[in-house]
Design a binder for these strands. Structure first.
Lengths: 174, 174
DNA sequence: TGCAATCTATCTATCAACAGATAGATTAGT
DNA sequence: ACTAATCTATCTGTTGATAGATAGATTGCA
């Protein structure tokens, strides 16, 4: 992957984290990376292509991060809660899949499909790590919702308040 | 409140539930209610005004619904879980405050403030109903997140999976 | 080696569609 | 006659997308 393609994905990711699919334009991305909007189209023909690849990359990256941390700490919930905590306290504050998932009904097919894939990956991995299906559903909802509520209240500490149980507990293991 | 003003709020609410703040235009709303876009501006001067009032109404409505149901059932979590379940299984599938909360960083001030007010209302009411602050934070995150995940997976039943604990349990009372 | 063909990555310029917003005329109810 | 509500018409700006030109690197063949 060329440097420019990566830079475009980075810029799009940042803007999607703030405003979702409607929250970025080819011209804005172009300014961010220092080229013209038509050149962004060269790398990603349509807006749908670009957004879908941002989500795909995020999913794969998250999956890898979780695997790496789970190898070091067998408490799956703590691993997940810590991983998303990084997002809550990052500059962007939000996970692109969460903001896109909330407006999933208004998304181009390819983007909606990638977002769906992200949440499926989360649930499947949690079950593989030992959680029951219901437990994984409830837990995933909690950490995703914590991201939304913290963002809405403009208070990252709110994420900690909502996830104390999982980040601290030594018992309720994977 | 005039019938037309209510109809405009209804239309805007529906469209916000699907696509957030960027998911509706004055022209679309105008078509929905059968007038011209300039006439929508007569009732709500700016897009910010309209969106803010949609959220304000949703907050007040939700607050009233919860109070009414809590008077009939003293189990606060069951009351909240059932109330949001109605949203998850509605045609719109989403709560406007949730979709707007996820993109809160990109919202006009007045809208962001109203969204913040919604989540504050939820937490304050939960605490007033007997939950601890941390418990309220975690529980609110769970039901909000369940809405997002169910929407992204295009499967309302996912909301039930994530909230079984609260909707069924007779014990973990308010 | 040297030349022709092709590819990569960017540019300029432009299009039709749509956005939010405003001014001013018109209509209908009291 | 006044007012509330709607209309017509228009403005300025932005959007995603496309066409066509260009410079430079790479490749393939004689």
């Amino acid at each position: 992957m060329s440097d420019m393609k990566t830079a475009i994905l980075d810029a799009a990711e940042r803007r999607i984290q703030a405003g979702g699919f409607g929250g970025f334009s080819f011209r804005e991305i172009a300014e961010d990376v220092g080229i013209k909007s038509s050149s962004v189209h060269y790398h990603f023909p349509t807006k749908e292509d670009l957004a879908a690849e941002v989500v795909r990359r995020w999913t794969d990256r998250t999956s890898g991060n979780i695997d790496r941390e789970f190898a070091k700490d067998p408490n799956a919930k703590r691993v997940w809660a810590k991983a998303l905590r990084g997002t809550a306290f990052s500059k962007a504050h939000m996970c692109p899949c969460t903001i896109l998932g909330a407006s999933s009904q208004d998304l181009p097919k390819a983007v909606a499909a990638e977002v769906k894939r992200f949440f499926k990956m989360c649930q499947d991995k949690m079950v593989a790590q030992g959680m029951s299906a219901d437990d994984a559903s409830e837990f995933l909802s909690t950490i995703i919702g914590a991201l939304v509520v913290a963002n809405a209240l403009r208070d990252s500490a709110e994420y900690d308040r909502a996830t104390t149980t999982f980040r601290v507990a030594e018992k309720s293991a994977a």
